[in-house]
Design a protein around this nucleic acid. Structure first.
Length: 930
RNA sequence: GCCCGGGUGGUGGAAUGGCAGACACGGCCGCCUUAAAAGCGGCUGCCCAAAAGGCGUGCGGGUUCGAGACCCGCCCCGGGCACCA
């Protein structure tokens, strides 16, 4: 292409670049996108949107990785930018901030490899991200940006930790309360007389046992390969670490936990107040895994085995019991010899029950998680030799151990009802155990019947239905002290400490008792100390018999600290674990509201304005939160939990952080491998006859994520260079609905560039640069098109349907292009409507049209309802479902006239046949049946 | 196995139960040009040489005057969960 022959005033990539950088400077210099707060440092009563209705829109902030952004990353950011630019013009005071989730493993691992401090790497990556995002023209309020690694930010992360630490959960009111209320209750004697007899240290232990953040010596997920423990959520179903894919071992270690299980009910029930995609709600419900039922005690000699069941109504059908192989009572109940009538299949051929148990445990332990899952259909187990008593009918039932019962769920023991539970049925079939039906089962039904029906063989429950029988049985269990109604959760408490360097330090020290002491707020932040030794001790990934060692524990001069915490200067030992990466992202939506407040996490007035409930029963929260579905459980569950604690303690007025959630799709790409399996640069591959070639070599195509190693990365920087940011933005928004994943195709970007060029050309003469717009009114037909487009575009953007909004703008542009003159009446609304998508070009054209300053606060066009009425309606006429003709009539034509006109239009096809039925759908079509 | 999504031209995708394929990419043709690029204009679901016509939204049934959309039964793809008592 010869540059010299391109018209001098054409909208080219070079011109776009010049315009874009200039407007980015203008916006920054004028603080165009600053959003005013009701109070405090960011209040601005003179702002055009001060006191206007608010709209808080937020993206899931990124971890700033060393690789920078590829074209897939900003999809959601551009989406929210288009949406918020539109809503700002439509009158809202818009909060649209961006920050960085900058603690985390990659910077630390890079530090271990290179010696570069994570703070240095992180700062450089954040700066790179900022530049890339700025180049896209994203309209953030830059005063509200922060990184989770800023000490001024993590000061408040630590403060929230202390709020959680200094609280307990009152089940009576189903909410968190200050721990000092609990201490007062103990001191007043209202929680029993024991308190008076306890030593100071014993009292602290009692209190610590109630805190929402507590230390526990409990089985945790120890990952020697990473040198750290992991939360349940960070372990994959096959027992490996989500990061790094190392083996994970269950070990008893003393760790910090957060009592998220206390919030199980509210985390489930409040989902109903949220405007979230159903699959995400479902994933949260499943993860929390609430089941309602009962605990039932089965007597066994002097012992009792407590089981959890969701089907207390079937207790009369419990014909055996199963304990998890690891259950603590197993060794106690095993008798010396097999009882007389033990079946061969029960004993597994072993001489004594003890031998059988040892052998089964060894076999179960040797199975990998994968084998165990794969064998799920084949039930294994062994008889313990013991019999327990069914409390409801006094019958003796054999007690088995089997690995289909999990030690970690419920009580690790079940009553087995083969007639009405599929797993129990399979086991009973394999071990020749009796099946007693307690619910009437349809004739000819084989297997376990889990449906509803009339209760039978169940004494006082007979004749009831399933639900009534459940309630009656729970009542009976409670009154006869054989059990009680109970709810269990799959959700476990949140393991909150990590043995890593690059995270928030805990604001906790230990005194000589070894018990934790919260530092006062005045000592925050506890700054992460400098070091050149970043790595936790890591081990052979397969060696589970290892102990964690934190990087901070090696900083002896930091760990030992002299403080005056009220009773004179004393030496304390600091907590050397750090918080998990989730901590910083658990509350960042709140800090955006009041980012520089030094006396509070957020001023209550600012929180109430931006996030407070709008109506009775409204949960409040961010109005629109956009991000990937991969955070459906982890991040979204943890941040909901923290938000509820802050709500209970009175720090926020909203009880959910994110009112509406939107999951954007992924931009994916093709990758190509040669016959050796090596990836070849995707941009060098050409297609011939449906096959793909790199040079002369045939290559195979695969489809998935963009990645450096796949050699298929396309960056927004390249797109800005080749086409300009506006073209890139329009392309990403036009290529499909925001929530759908789709392949990237660089060569298709040119379509968006042509569209912007055509629009530009409507205003600017490409040869002279002169503005071509006239003040002549539009012809009536074009005016109708204009208003129809305005109405459609408004609706589409409000519903996040950017692709169809852009299609309508293209249609309008294509309608205006062939007209002899370019009317201001059409051009000004077009420029305003394009500004959410192509903001730089729109600003530039707005200036050329004679306006001063930015259009960011100009009124978004509104359609004139009078113009939305069509002049004429064309009715397609169907005969037996096929279109055979059409008639054009004026919109107010009476139905009878439409009908006769339509019949006339298809007279030939009817060929004299009398229509059986004629249906006139007003404004739509006419359907004739013969 | 269970629970969610989703299958529409060569491609990305449009379509409150009412003319399937808007808009765009690609392709073909034309204008402009010494030429090419860019730009502009036209054509572009499939079958048939064309017209007329017929067939078309994963497959098979159904409801309806009318189904891409609703109902029933399958197939395929993507995601989540996976012995949770």
């Amino acid at each position: 292409m010869s540059e010299t022959e391109t018209p001098p005033f054409r909208y080219t990539a070079a011109m776009a670049g010049e315009i874009e950088l200039r407007w980015q400077d203008f916006w920054a210099a004028n603080g165009t996108f600053h959003a005013p707060n009701p109070t405090g440092e960011l209040a601005d009563p003179d702002h055009p949107r001060a006191g206007a209705p608010k709209l808080h829109v937020q993206d899931m902030f990124p971890y700033p990785s060393g690789a920078g952004l590829h074209v897939g990353h900003p999809l959601g950011y551009i989406g929210t930018d288009c949406y918020t630019r539109f809503q700002r013009m439509a009158g809202y005071n818009v909060l649209h901030p961006m920050g960085f989730d900058a603690f985390g493993l990659p910077a630390e691992q890079y530090a271990v490899q290179t010696g570069t401090h994570p703070a240095v790497t992180t700062a450089a990556n954040v700066e790179r991200y900022r530049q890339q995002l700025r180049r896209l023209g994203l309209a953030y309020d830059d005063r509200r940006s922060f990184s989770t690694t800023d000490p001024e930010y993590y000061r408040w992360t630590q403060w929230i930790f202390l709020q959680v630490f200094n609280s307990w959960f009152d089940p009576a009111e189903n909410k968190a309360k200050p721990i000092k209320d609990l201490i007062a209750a103990y001191e007043s004697g209202e929680r029993g007389p024991e308190w008076a007899g306890l030593s100071a240290t014993e009292r602290r232990k009692v209190i610590d046992g109630h805190r929402l953040a507590y230390m526990s010596e409990a089985p945790v997920n120890w990952c020697p390969g990473l040198g750290t423990v992991l939360s349940n959520e960070e372990v994959t179903p096959d027992g490996r670490s989500e990061r790094g894919n190392f083996p994970v071992f269950k070990r008893n270690l003393k760790q910090w936990m957060m009592r998220i299980t206390a919030y199980g009910d509210r985390l489930i029930e409040d989902l109903d107040t949220l405007d979230w995609p159903d699959p995400v709600k479902l994933m949260q419900r499943n993860w929390i895994g609430r089941s309602k039922g009962a605990h039932v005690d089965f007597a066994l000699g002097d012992h009792k085995i407590t089981v959890f069941t969701t089907r207390p109504d079937t207790l009369f059908g419990a014909t055996y019991m199963v304990l998890a192989p690891e259950h603590e009572l197993v060794d106690t109940i095993v008798p010396g010899n097999w009882p007389a009538n033990s079946k061969e299949v029960w004993t597994g051929g072993h001489a004594t029950p003890a031998e059988a148990v040892v052998a089964y445990r060894a076999a179960a332990a040797a199975k990998t998680e994968e084998e165990r899952t794969a064998d799920a259909k084949v039930k294994t187990g062994v008889f313990t030799g013991a019999y327990a008593t069914n409390p409801v009918n006094g019958e003796l039932v054999p007690v088995f151990i089997a690995d289909y019962v999990l030690a970690g769920y419920g009580t690790g023991a079940i009553m087995a009802v083969p007639a009405h539970d599929e797993r129990d049925y399979e086991f009973a079939t394999a071990f020749a155990l009796p099946v007693v039906r307690t619910i009437e089962t349809p004739e000819g039904f084989e297997g376990a019947y889990t449906g509803d029906g009339v209760v039978i063989n169940s004494g006082f429950l007979d004749g009831k239905n399933k639900d009534d029988a459940k309630a009656a049985m729970i009542e009976w269990l409670e009154s006869s002290r054989k059990g009680q109604g109970a709810t269990t959760y799959r959700l476990r408490d949140w393991l909150f400490s990590r043995q890593r360097y690059w995270g928030e330090p805990f604001p906790i020290v230990y005194d000589e008792t070894g018990l934790p002491i919260a530092l006062p707020d005045s000592m925050l932040p506890v700054v992460l100390p400098d070091t050149d030794d970043f790595s936790p001790r890591t081990f052979d990934p397969e060696d589970g018999d290892t102990e964690p060692e934190t990087p901070l524990s090696r900083k002896k001069d930091w760990v030992q600290v002299e403080l005056d915490l009220g009773d004179g200067p004393k030496t304390y030992t600091r907590e050397t674990n750090t918080m998990p990466q989730w901590a910083g992202s658990c509350w960042y939506e709140l800090r955006y509201l009041d980012p520089h407040n030094e006396s509070a996490m957020v001023d209550p007035a600012n929180e109430a304005y931006w996030m407070g409930p709008r109506a009775e029963g409204d949960c409040g929260g961010v109005d629109l939160y956009v991000g990937g579905v991969e955070h459906a459980v982890l991040h979204l569950l943890y941040s909901r939990f923290w938000h509820k604690v802050l709500f209970d303690l009175g720090h926020v007025s909203s009880f959910e952080p994110f009112k509406k959630l939107f999951n954007q799709g992924m931009i994916q790409a093709y990758a190509y491998q040669d016959d050796r399996g090596f990836y070849v640069p995707a941009e060098e591959v050409v297609e011939r006859d449906g096959k793909y070639f790199h040079g002369d070599q045939a290559v195979t195509r695969s489809y998935g994520k963009m990645g450096k190693s796949l050699k298929n990365v396309v960056t927004p920087d390249e797109m800005c260079e080749l086409y300009g940011a506006d073209t890139f933005r329009v392309y990403e928004m036009a290529m499909g609905p925001l929530d759908v994943s789709r392949p990237w195709e660089t060569r298709a970007v040119v379509g968006s560039q042509r569209f912007l060029q055509r629009t530009w050309r409507l205003v600017v003469d490409e040869e002279t640069g002169a503005v071509r717009v006239t003040d002549e009114p539009l012809d009536p037909k074009t005016r109708k098109v204009l208003h129809k487009v305005i109405a459609g575009v408004r609706e589409d953007i409000a519903e996040l349907r950017f692709n169809t909004a852009i299609a309508k703008l293209i249609e309008l542009t294509n309608t205006l292009t062939p007209l002899p003159s370019v009317s201001r009446e059409a051009i000004e609304p077009l420029v305003l409507m394009m500004s959410p998508f192509a903001p730089h070009m729109a600003e530039e054209l707005w200036g050329k049209l004679g306006h001063r300053g930015s259009l960011a606060y100009a009124d978004f066009p509104v359609a004139d309802p009078a113009q939305l009425v069509a002049d004429a309606i064309t009715y397609p006429v169907q005969v037996n479902g096929k279109v055979r003709g059409r008639v054009e009539v004026s919109p107010d034509t009476p139905e009878a006239d439409v009908r006769s006109a339509a019949l006339a239009a298809v007279e030939e096809i009817l060929a004299g046949k009398e229509p059986k039925k004629v249906i006139v759908v007003k404004g739509r079509l006419v359907s004739v049946v013969v």
